[in-house]
Design a protein around this nucleic acid. Structure first.
Lengths: 242, 242
DNA sequence: CGAGGCCTTGACCCAGCTCAAATAAGGTGG
DNA sequence: CCACCTTATTTGAGCTGGGTCAAGGCCTCG
């Protein structure tokens, strides 16, 4: 007989996230009673820009993009998030519109919490307030870095920087194989370039650094060589913690 | 006989800033006892990137740029702040390095507070914690918008957007004259372009929209026309509150 | 009047974009 | 397992916005 599907341990999951790590058991239990676990397929739109600010999301698995689009239909991808990252605006009131839309770029599971519960917890518990402040600060610094990258790095360098995020903890001298986590087109937009440019820039990395690409598998013969190529045009140095 | 110079009312000034508006008199008084009023000339560097995170700044007057620079000497201006805006990192511990440098781009007065006092107040007073969260959220959304602009707007459009920030509260149909608040080169870098490009893009605006430029005075014959030209390539619409 | 700092202009170049078409890579029904 | 369809990715050809480098202008201040 088939075992019943194991229920997802929301409280346990949240406790592992820096934002929630300092909360009391009773609070986490309360949160998880109001939490919903959503599983969504690639392509699903979670909400659009200007939606009411009612929910806070924590990614359990998969990938989600945050984006803005202009009147004439251009899309700018602000960020692409994965397991352990979260989005939603505790610092905006419930009546202010969301400043971005969100959509799933690779099948994802998400914990969804009511925004007001987190806002109330900020008022009640200054430890949580400080944790939220820290999380948001890192987010903003991440954006600062993004602005710098788009100003001073070439397309191949931005790709190099992207690839290096998947090489942390790896010996610099060695070769390393990694898998691109979602569509190349989505990576391209996230890096602020067109898919065609992404494709061609990847060719440059092949030619100059001996990188090989097969489907979504990328092999980097020398992480050090890639660091040299990429990080000279950046203010932080590898491994680039944010 | 010459009157003694009036002492700057730090507590009164802080009370007018959204971040500090909710504080008790006694707290503000305490803050202002530890506050220093600094007056700095254009060109002064306040601190460099990676400096220890010990101070929090509120701009009283003038203009201050926040910037990052890469190994090979390129500079990316993250933001340029004026009266009522603040910078410093309450959400980073005192031992973490500042993620950007700061320099004065037009003679400025600044209130400088010890970072630890604000961090302590966050722990003590959740109203202040929430205010900090709100301020930081707006900062991050500002950065999101900046990323969008650099992705989807042309150089003349970015300049248009910059100029429009000085036209808020003004009848859209009318002409309007404003003064550029600091070096054109600094504006250029803040908008993510080179000074030469800034100069030429301004010529385009002259030709296409009848804008005139004399020194740092810019006259916009029709704010509406500029809005039409600029904001079609943006997700927010004029007046572009952040 | 001269020096230096800002800003503009000219000439040229090139990274990245556009448009269009050719290939891969999955996914589905038969 | 194959033919077919759909979606992703690559490639080609040509264009152009913005960058680079270098030379003037212009304004301010000593």
């Amino acid at each position: 007989m088939q075992a019943a599907q194991v229920k997802f341990d929301t409280a346990g999951f949240l406790r592992q996230q820096p934002l929630f790590a300092g909360l009391k058991d009773s609070t986490l239990k309360n949160f998880s009673e109001y939490a919903v676990l959503r599983a969504e397929k690639k392509g699903t739109q979670l909400f659009s820009a200007d939606a009411p600010n009612e929910q806070f999301f924590v990614v359990v698995s998969g990938w989600v993009k945050l984006f803005r689009e202009t009147l004439d239909g251009e899309e700018a991808i602000i960020d692409i998030l994965t397991a352990g990252q979260s989005f939603g605006e505790i610092g905006l009131s419930g009546s202010e519109p969301m400043p971005y839309g969100a959509a799933v770029v690779d099948d994802a599971q998400l914990v969804v919490l009511p925004r007001f519960m987190l806002a109330e917890e900020v008022m009640r518990n200054s430890v949580f307030g400080l944790a939220a402040l820290q999380a948001l600060t890192r987010q903003r610094i991440q954006r600062d870095l993004e602005i710098e990258h788009r100003t001073v790095q070439s397309a191949p360098q931005r790709i190099g920087c992207f690839l290096l995020k998947f090489c942390t903890g790896h010996a610099e001298e060695d070769a390393h194989t990694l898998h691109l986590p979602y569509d190349k087109a989505a990576i391209a937009y996230k890096l602020g370039m067109k898919p065609e440019t992404f494709s061609r820039a990847l060719q440059n990395l092949k030619a100059d650094l001996g990188i090989t690409v097969k489907g979504n598998a990328v092999t980097i013969p020398s992480v050090k060589a890639l660091v040299d190529f990429t990080c000279s045009a950046c203010s932080s140095s590898f491994p680039c913690k944010v």
